[in-house]
Deep mutational scan, measured.
Amino acid sequence: MTEYKLVVVGAGGVGKSALTIQLIQNHFVDEYDPTIEDSYRKQVVIDGETCLLDILDTAGQEEYSAMRDQYMRTGEGFLCVFAINNTKSFEDIHHYREQIKRVKDSEDVPMVLVGNKCDLPSRTVDTKQAQDLARSYGIPFIETSAKTRQGVDDAFYTLVREIRKHKEKMSKDGKKKKKKSKTKCVIM
């Protein structure tokens, strides 16, 4: 069974824990209790493949930012979460993405942009803004509501699919490099 290491990042209060708990335990946590770091595991079937999701729910508070490099190193894919009623959390996505790329030393890291709290009427981040940002990053965008469960499975499952595509691409690139290195030079 394939294991996928997913990391949920975003500013404090955007609903990272609520999304994760909704996926794992099928219930909505409405009281806000700032996370330092929590880890969850769940076995699911995605596109006919049974897999184990190892999900790291991270601290959004700035005082825990020193811990970010460590979990970013171990993560295979990242859910970059903002709240649709919090423009600052949307603007912060850029910083999370840049930090992930720096730590992973790669421009090509599996990510999904997630606009959470889409059940709320007080939207300050337009869907088109988020779609445009995701398009500019070359990553999928999904709106979710941890409260109603809308888009929750889709967000995590899409990230797994992005990781699969990335692994497939990397193995193809690896095979191309191996083929090239088999060419021999004969000096007579």
Results as ranks from 00 to 15, higher is better:
V125R: 14
V125W: 10
V125A: 04
V125L: 11
V125C: 14
D126A: 08
D126E: 09
D126C: 08
D126N: 08
D126H: 08
D126V: 05
D126M: 07
D126P: 03
D126F: 06
D126T: 06
D126G: 08
T127Y: 09
T127D: 12
T127C: 12
T127V: 12
K128G: 12
K128W: 07
K128M: 11
K128A: 12
Q129W: 14
Q129T: 09
Q129S: 08
Q129P: 05
Q129N: 13
A130F: 15
A130C: 11
A130S: 06
A130H: 04
A130I: 15
A130M: 13
A130E: 08
A130T: 07
A130W: 15
Q131L: 07
Q131N: 07
Q131R: 13
Q131P: 05
D132C: 03
D132P: 01
D132Q: 09
D132L: 04
D132E: 14
L133R: 06
L133P: 03
L133N: 05
L133M: 12
A134P: 01
A134Y: 09
R135F: 04
R135E: 15
R135D: 14
R135T: 05
R135Q: 12
S136F: 06
S136L: 11
S136V: 07
S136C: 05
S136P: 04
Y137H: 11
Y137D: 12
Y137T: 13
Y137L: 15
Y137W: 15
Y137G: 07
G138W: 00
G138M: 02
G138Y: 01
I139D: 04
I139Y: 04
I139R: 01
I139K: 01
I142R: 02
I142D: 01
E143D: 13
E143A: 02
S145W: 05
S145C: 15
A146F: 00
R149V: 07
R149M: 14
R149A: 11
Q150S: 15
Q150R: 08
G151W: 13
G151K: 13
V152D: 05
V152N: 13
V152L: 12
V152K: 11
V152R: 05
V152F: 12
D153I: 14
D153C: 10
D153V: 14
D153S: 12
D153P: 08
D153Y: 10
D154N: 10
D154K: 09
D154A: 10
D154R: 08
D154F: 05
D154W: 03
D154M: 08
A155T: 01
A155F: 01
A155S: 03
A155C: 11
F156Q: 00
F156K: 00
F156L: 06
F156I: 13
Y157I: 15
Y157N: 12
Y157P: 07
Y157L: 08
Y157W: 10
Y157R: 14
Y157D: 10
Y157T: 14
T158W: 02
T158R: 05
T158Q: 14
T158K: 05
T158I: 03
T158L: 04
T158F: 02
L159G: 00
L159K: 00
L159W: 00
L159Q: 00
L159M: 02
L159D: 00
L159V: 03
V160W: 02
V160Y: 04
V160Q: 02
V160T: 03
V160L: 07
V160F: 07
V160K: 06
E162H: 03
E162S: 05
E162Q: 10
E162N: 03
E162T: 03
E162L: 06
E162Y: 01
E162I: 02
I163W: 01
R164C: 02
R164L: 12
R164N: 11
R164S: 13
R164Q: 07
K165G: 08
K165M: 06
K165W: 01
K165F: 02
K165S: 03
K165V: 08
K165R: 09
K165D: 04
K165Y: 03
H166E: 04
H166I: 06
H166V: 06
H166W: 04
K167G: 07
K167W: 02
K167T: 04
K167L: 01
K167F: 02
K167Y: 02
K167P: 01
K167D: 12
E168S: 06
E168V: 03
E168R: 07
E168G: 06
K169I: 09
K169R: 12
K169G: 11
K169M: 11
K169F: 10
M170A: 08
K172R: 05
K172Q: 11
K172V: 14
K172I: 11
D173S: 02
K175C: 12
K175G: 12
K175R: 08
K175E: 15
K176G: 15
K176C: 12
K176W: 11
K177R: 12
K177W: 02
K177G: 13
K177M: 14
K178I: 07
K178R: 07
K178F: 09
K180A: 12
S181R: 03
S181C: 08
K182S: 08
K182F: 01
K184L: 00
K184A: 01
K184H: 06
V186Y: 01
V186N: 15
V186P: 15
V186F: 07
V186D: 15
I187R: 14
M188R: 15
M188S: 15
M188E: 15
